[in-house]
Design a protein around this nucleic acid. Structure first.
Length: 558
RNA sequence: UGAGGUGUCGCCAAGUGGCUAAGGCAUCGGACUUUGAAUCCGACAUUCGUAGGUUCGAAUCCUACCACCUCAGCCA
């Protein structure tokens, strides 16, 4: 494991927390939360936030809440809360007994809203959505007061209660905070606190027909839960004054502090819920857990470990500058983890048959192969060796360039942990394609060394023809062809950059020893990459997902 | 162009006035190698958006400018 994992993360948020601790700001408490809206699956960007929030709680002896920000019943579903819980848990964040929902606070929020009305700080507005927009002004011009802004407290109270009772149709009225229509910060121009929505909520059912807006619900929920550091992304910076206004104008039990950090952006991928939603709904991928998706579910199915995701999150850091992390960083994290933990195996993706002419027909030797070259404690396994074997088509060239270390006519290579092999001839089909190789082996090279100590430059992988097992192997490439999928021409959107070759399905062969491995098992297929058994596997017909290729420093001669 | 933010190596990112501007990823050399993997060694910002200023001394302080991001949902 790399040493960065043992380093204590250091960033501006941890600096703030440390200061608060030394000044005893929250009586030494640290309490964070992860507040997803259950309207989609979690992705790698959420993992950054979860890792930050949970990491903070763990490092400073604090607590971490999982709170669903479920204030918009028209977009939220139980399926999403289930998947989010599973993903947060898989990532290793523990909310203990604090599984919470903003909808649990609807009653309290309602009471606080009536308090604001009584205090002359909120009013019911009859303007339409369109009118409200017009009255709001623009970025450079102040807004105008709504004609309903100065209703009496009694009328406001009555109207608000009737809104709650469901007497008015959707969109007919809203409750607004009375702040300042001329504020240079548009969020403060009498923001909407409640809208009427005759919709069934996934938890509260039809109990409510008014629902609080994010700005109103979020800070108050933080206050109720005793959150000390309410961490969100940069786009909420402009909302912070409003977050604070709501806390200052009702009698809250606690004052949380909102801190914003830059959300994750990754090359060759999109990380907006709306785009991910489209990829799923429009069939560009096969569901939220498609291994090409940057969702937690997709990464998991692809073969990523939560440990790798965690170490990636630590490697990228936390800051306020917008930035785009190279995909190579994520790939490094999973290679780094799997290099240590994944047992090695051999698989041939594109088989080329080899007949070893001096090997006795009918003879089978059980070769003993190490499961990990650097970790003998990972044990060994048996792979049968016989007269007919498969090698990778790529590992043979009829006319190789001089730096090609693999098999070619007259050249000798080592079959991984088996024998030295020399190519003596080729069999071609009518099209001139090589369909079979004729070779000889050196009986004195068993295990991969010879008494004369001669060197071979190349070692290739192999599989016995009879005992190897056919497998479906899914080779993934990036879902987009450009580092920035949003880099499109006029009238195009990100789908124009979808990579038509992001999934290549291949019928290859694997060792008998791994043919029935359970879904989720991870291996390094030697010289090729890390692979993971997919849940689509059937007994005797395994399906493997390529998690990531191995690094490859081989460069064909110019 | 109102307000709020951000600008340190190809990509992340430390650095909060004083040794030669951390570290990771990537890249490029070389060693080792029964994975062209891993591992190991080495190279990789006289310069911190730009221009001025303060100071014995500035990426760090001041001034001006430039670039980029966010905000005009009854989304979050």
């Amino acid at each position: 494991m790399s040493d960065r994992n043992t380093d204590t993360p250091n960033d501006f948020i941890r600096a703030i927390v440390r200061e608060d601790l030394t000044s005893n700001k929250n009586r030494g408490r640290v309490h964070t939360r992860f507040p997803p809206e259950p309207n989609g699956y979690l992705h790698i960007g959420h993992a950054k936030s979860i890792n930050l929030n949970y990491g903070l709680a763990r490092e400073f002896g604090g607590k971490f809440n999982l709170r669903f920000d479920d204030t918009n019943p028209t977009k939220e579903e139980q399926e999403y809360v289930d998947s989010i819980m599973a993903d947060v848990r898989w990532l290793g964040a523990d909310w203990e007994d604090r599984l919470l929902f903003a909808s649990d606070y609807f009653g309290r929020l309602y009471e606080w809203a009536t308090y604001l009305i009584r205090d002359g700080k909120a009013y019911v507005d009859d303007l339409s959505a369109e009118e409200i927009r017009q009255y709001r002004g623009t970025l450079t011009e102040p807004g105008q007061d709504s004609p309903y802004r100065n209703r009496s407290v009694e009328e406001n109270l009555d109207l608000f209660e009737r809104m709650k009772k469901g007497e008015f149709p959707d969109g007919s009225r809203v409750l607004r905070a009375k702040i300042d229509m001329a504020s240079p910060n548009i969020n403060l121009r009498d923001p909407v606190m409640y809208r009427i929505l005759h919709a069934t909520h996934h938890r509260t059912g039809d109990e409510w027909c008014i629902y609080p807006m994010y700005d109103w619900a979020h800070g108050q929920s933080d206050a109720i839960e005793g959150i000390t550091h309410s961490i969100c992304t940069l786009e909420f910076e402009n909302n912070r004054p409003l977050y604070n206004w709501f806390l200052e104008n009702v009698d809250v039990p606690h004052y949380p502090r909102q801190i914003e950090f830059a959300r994750l952006q990754l090359t060759y991928t999109v990380l907006s819920k709306r785009y991910l939603q489209r990829l799923v709904k429009e069939g560009y991928v096969n569901g939220w857990d498609d291994p090409r998706m940057p969702t937690i579910a997709g990464l998991r199915r692809r073969g990523y470990t939560s440990e790798a995701i965690r170490s990636f999150c630590e490697a990228i850091g936390v800051a306020k500058a917008n930035s785009t992390v190279e995909l190579a960083m994520l790939e490094h994290a999973i290679r780094d983890d799997l290099n240590m933990s994944a047992p090695r195996a051999m698989a041939v993706l594109d088989p080329l048959k080899v007949v070893i002419e001096n090997y006795p027909a009918g003879q089978v030797e059980e070769m003993v192969l190490a499961n990990h070259p650097q970790q003998p404690e990972m044990g060994t396994r048996l792979v049968p060796f016989s007269r007919e074997i498969y090698i990778e088509r790529d590992d043979f060239m009829e006319n190789p360039p001089n730096k090609f270390f693999r098999l070619a006519p007259g050249r000798e290579v080592r079959l991984n942990q088996a024998y030295y092999l020399t190519c003596t001839g080729m069999v071609k089909d009518e099209q001139g394609q090589v369909v079979e190789l004729r070779c000889t082996y050196d009986p004195d090279s068993r295990g991969g060394t010879t008494p004369d100590g001669r060197k071979v430059k190349g070692t290739i992988h192999w599989l016995p023809v009879a005992q190897s097992v056919e497998a479906e192997i899914r080779l993934y490439d990036t879902l987009f062809t450009k580092p920035n999928p949003g880099d499109v021409g006029e009238g195009e959107d990100f789908t124009a950059n979808i990579n038509p070759d992001s999934l290549m399905v291949v019928r290859g062969r694997v060792e008998p020893a791994i043919a029935s491995a359970p879904a989720g098992s991870r291996y390094q297929f030697m010289r090729q990459g890390y692979f993971c058994v997919d849940p689509d596997s059937q007994p005797g017909r395994p399906v493997f997902n390529r998690t990531v290729t191995l690094r490859d420093s081989y460069k064909p001669a110019p």
